[in-house]
Design a protein around this nucleic acid. Structure first.
Length: 273
DNA sequence: AATTGCCTCAACCGCAATATA
DNA sequence: ATATATTGCGGTTGAGGCAAT
């Protein structure tokens, strides 16, 4: 028996919100608040929408002081540093960027920032090139060692590898990756980054997950305990730790060249192996 | 001008965590 | 302590727009 649906799918409207619906929702919330009950809200507001849909619409688009588009270099830098350190925990990353939503940042990372950082070949519109990228394969027993002097001591979250998987090293996602000194290793007998069911290891935020995640970090990055501990209870603390580490990648504050080059080099090295 | 294919982003889905009865 | 309801989150999808052919 499956989970009960949050609303009657047959009675609720789906798809893009109309300006009238936006107005209706905005006016209702401005007048009455959310009442901490999104399930009941659409009915009270006279909307034929699922409560979750209303919540998403409000949080991502209608609430005041939302910023859209035009991410600044500083925002890029914060997103990258946090992603490298904590992975795809968009809500936490969004917490460090006033006016930005997790959805916006997620989209931005997936569609632009990732490509910008990893300098995806410009031939992506060419089907031949694309096919080449997608089908490039590695020997199942292959072990690679990629030198990254710049990354020594920097905590790299396993999901950084996950995030690259579809485009850059799909075959490698089946293979463990770990850092040894200033080498990032692929293949070999080290423990895998993936959970037993094949899903990413960074799903879940509970303390149990964190301890297992740290355990993985220890395996992945034997580069000092200090860099392995993250305090997730207080998001504001996140800013200092990873950004400090991340700053090691910068020669000066004017340019992101060093960081870009480090990550790009990693992507290139992986790709060209 | 028409077609094809890629990119973007708003929205949905399912699951885990949390709150409440 | 347990069951149920609700919220919050990250992954994924698909419509629409755009560029290349």
């Amino acid at each position: 028996m499956g989970r009960a649906p949050c609303c009657d799918k047959a009675k609720v409207k789906k798809g893009t919100w109309s300006p009238e619906e936006d107005k209706q929702l905005k006016e209702y919330i401005e007048r009455h608040g959310t009442g901490r009950n999104w399930i009941a809200l659409p009915q009270k507001a006279g909307l034929r929408r699922c409560g979750k849909s209303c919540r998403l619409r409000w949080l991502n688009y209608l609430r005041p002081n939302i910023k859209h588009g035009d991410f600044s270099d500083e925002e890029d830098r914060i997103i990258c540093s946090l992603f490298v350190s904590i992975g795809s925990r968009w809500s936490i990353i969004a917490g460090q960027l006033p006016g930005r939503t997790d959805n916006d940042i997620k989209n931005y990372w997936n569609t632009k920032l990732k490509k910008k950082l990893f300098d995806q070949p410009p031939s992506h519109r060419n089907p031949h090139h694309q096919q080449h990228y997608r089908t490039q394969s590695f020997s199942s027993n292959l072990e690679m060692a990629v030198p990254f002097p710049d990354l020594e001591g920097i905590p790299i979250h396993p999901s950084l590898f996950d995030s690259l998987t579809p485009t850059f090293f799909s075959p490698l996602c089946q293979r463990p990756a770990y850092q040894s000194g200033n080498l990032i290793m692929f293949g070999g007998d080290q423990p895998s980054c993936s959970s037993s069911d094949g899903s990413s290891i960074h799903t879940g935020y509970g303390s149990e997950h964190m301890s297992s995640e740290n355990h993985l970090h220890e395996k992945l990055l034997p580069c000092g305990e200090a860099s392995l501990r993250y305090e997730f209870d207080e998001p504001s603390q996140l800013h200092a730790c990873p950004v400090d580490a991340f700053d090691k990648l910068y020669l000066d504050s004017k340019s992101s060249a060093t960081m870009d080059m480090s990550l790009r080099n990693m992507a290139r090295a992986i790709y060209h192996c």
